[in-house]
Design a protein around this nucleic acid. Structure first.
Lengths: 248, 248
DNA sequence: GCCCATCTTTGACGCAGATCAACCTTTGTC
DNA sequence: GACAAAGGTTGATCTGCGTCAAAGATGGGC
């Protein structure tokens, strides 16, 4: 099973879909060659746990394809998603022995992993890696702070609209050109995962999605396929400034 | 007025109270000497705004003494605190032209500032600075994620207990030794600022503090002076694992 | 085709926390 | 010492979202 998956994995960094956005983005070819000697790919199936909080973590790595979530749990079972990991996002923290959060693949996923110790050693002598990791971490911190505003101050309807606009914007940044016209995408999360993201219950998520559909803010085909006819309208519903450009 | 304050400012990095925890923590003396040429101190009074979100930001720097907050505002006036800046914390983002958040001094505060451009240039050739900034940013990201769990999933009472335990723990980490016995500290925030931190209203903050006092979890003298007779009890009220060590 | 598991929707009801309002305490100014 | 302003407390009421419950899609396995 793992062998089968391995056959379809990328072999060469030159072919890698995240070559220019991941932690290796700034590396020169000689640096890539060194990274290549400590890297290996791992595949995960949808629903599979990558690592549990508290477990020893002897690798770090990048999401190559698919989506994973970072979640934090309380003893009584309440759970809050604290990170949504998309292709090129980095997993793990150099210098840390154990995982701080549960990491779960929500779709089939492929990771490009590095053994932690060699990666740390290489980072110490390769500014290009450390620089890129700093930049990515600062971006994540900004995203976390945006998310805090959503969690702390927005209504359920605004929360849903915010999540939809985040997903829509990300999809737009992947597909080239075409700023105009309706945005179309598939939700990569179940209602329950959306609830964990937004600090809501899954029932409230379902109700608010229905309400946004009823009000024409979104169009649904099936449960996951979403069309946004007017992105500015969605932004207004999210409580965000609508004058910001639609693309980052 | 500013001149008066300037007279009491530290002059030499050797005397600096945050020398070993700030972004310069790992610098050698020659690196410090270079930093010294681009640094200057600024004082702020309690309540004074350091910078508004969106303003041009031509410096970065560290909080030396006092406390500042990072807050994000929606157009309709709802606000969420997204950062609590204590001595040694870093303000600003290298490579970014404008401030992303409002920065406000909540107590009298002194900052050690660096002009942004020279700082960026120096960072590019001084791994000790970049390394330390990465480490601090990763710590902040962890703190932000912990905070997301608080905002998304905890009750008002748990939120207050969480905030108190964060402040208590920080004070403990500053004052040496003495793990046992009651913890005593002053709240550095108004009820309104606590509400902004926790995604609550100030009335709810006030009520929950009264409730924790009535239940003996905390003892209040005046409105700001807090005694925590049993820290594990407070941790339980916060919904946290109480088996984690009391100090980081 | 049928069954079962998973995901989702919708309804009825209750409660935690928001809102609105009044009043208290402390501090600084004249 | 009177006053005002800022911060804080407490009460009454309202409401958005959680909780509990039931039932409707959808898809995979046999």
């Amino acid at each position: 099973m793992l062998n089968e998956a391995a056959k379809t994995l990328p072999r060469d960094c030159g072919d890698c879909p995240i070559r220019h956005r991941a932690v290796c983005a700034r590396c020169e070819s000689d640096e890539l060659a060194k990274l290549d000697t400590i890297k290996y790919y791992r595949s995960f199936e949808a629903g599979q746990t990558v690592i549990w909080a508290g477990d020893k973590m002897d690798f770090v790595g990048s999401v190559v394809t698919g989506i994973a979530t970072l979640t934090q749990a309380m003893e009584d079972g309440r759970t809050q998603m604290v990170g949504l990991l998309l292709p090129s996002d980095f997993v793990g923290r150099p210098g840390r022995e154990t995982a701080a959060y549960d990491v779960v693949a929500t779709t089939d996923m492929v990771m490009c992993c590095f053994r932690r110790k060699p990666f740390e050693e290489m980072m110490a002598v390769t500014p290009h890696i450390a620089q890129r990791l700093l930049e990515m971490t600062l971006d994540e911190l900004d995203a976390a702070r945006e998310w805090m505003l959503v969690l702390g101050r927005k209504t359920a309807r605004e929360k849903i609209a915010s999540l939809l606009s985040i997903i829509a914007r990300r999809n737009a940044s992947l597909s080239v050109g075409k700023t105009t016209g309706p945005m179309v995408f598939d939700l990569p999360l179940t209602r329950e995962a959306m609830a964990d993201y937004l600090g809501l219950t899954l029932e409230t998520v379902s109700r608010q999605i229905s309400a946004l559909r009823k009000d024409g803010v979104i169009v649904l085909e099936g449960k996951r396929h979403v069309t946004v006819p007017d992105f500015n309208r969605l932004m207004e519903e999210a409580g965000d400034d609508s004058d910001g450009g639609p693309l980052a």
